[in-house]
């Protein structure tokens, strides 16, 4: 079973300058009743995107036609709250391939990486530069280079490097899946079990 491969991407970005975006906002609990992984993107940020009557809230960045692209840029502590992987699925299913923030909640980060959604953690200062670049030009382009672990604001050439676990980087670049890896070390696991009994 493979995850989608990722190497390099140049695209526009959608700004979400809100802190502590929790997984109940990303995908409210009432949309977690599915038994398959389908259609979660439709309900991404459901209660921020639509009003009670189901009309689009036009001021919300995802509904604003001037923004688009495959990068979501959010303020600090993105993905806090529950462990629901549906949150990562929803972000990916909507069409984002990268989420940028100055700080990610741990479980969300793991969930994203396990699904081919790249998380790029940058400094608070660099994050503000990204928001400023989008404010100056909503069609501003950004480059995410996973092999070199860099994120570039194309218009200004401003570049920052980002950290990623070496194993996870390999997985993302090659589309490897953790379960396949764990199944491949079955003998080690059995030896470990025997050593404990």
């Amino acid at each position: 079973m493979a995850i989608p491969k990722f190497t390099k991407l140049t695209t526009t970005a959608c700004p979400l300058n809100i802190e502590n975006v929790d997984t109940d906002q990303i995908i409210p609990a009432r949309f977690l009743k599915a038994v398959e992984r389908k259609g979660f993107g439709d309900n991404l940020f459901r209660d921020w995107r639509y009003d009670k009557q189901g009309n689009k809230i036009t001021t919300f960045p995802l509904n604003d036609p001037k923004y688009g692209g495959e990068i979501l840029v959010a303020a600090k502590n993105f993905g806090c709250g529950s462990s629901r992987e549906h949150a990562a699925w929803a972000v990916f299913d909507y069409g984002f391939r990268v989420v940028v923030s100055s700080f990610f909640a741990d479980i969300f980060k793991n969930n994203a990486l396990n699904n081919g959604l790249v998380v790029v953690q940058v400094s608070e200062e660099f994050l503000n530069k990204i928001f400023a670049a989008i404010a100056a030009d909503p069609k501003a382009q950004f480059e995410v280079d996973l092999p070199n672990q860099t994120f570039t604001i194309c218009a200004t050439g401003d570049k920052t490097s980002f950290d990623i676990d070496g194993y996870k980087k390999e997985c993302l670049m090659n589309g490897y899946d953790d379960v396949d890896y764990l199944l491949s070390i079955k003998d080690d696991i059995e030896r470990f079990e025997q050593s404990r009994s």
């Binding site: 992987e85 396990n114 953790d178």
Partner: peptide, 22 residues
Amino acid sequence: FGIGTSEVEMVFASQCILQPKP
């Protein structure tokens, strides 16, 4: 600790998960 669904599948498949040490 809490885990995501991909990790639930890892535990099902192998009784192990891959995890960075906090």
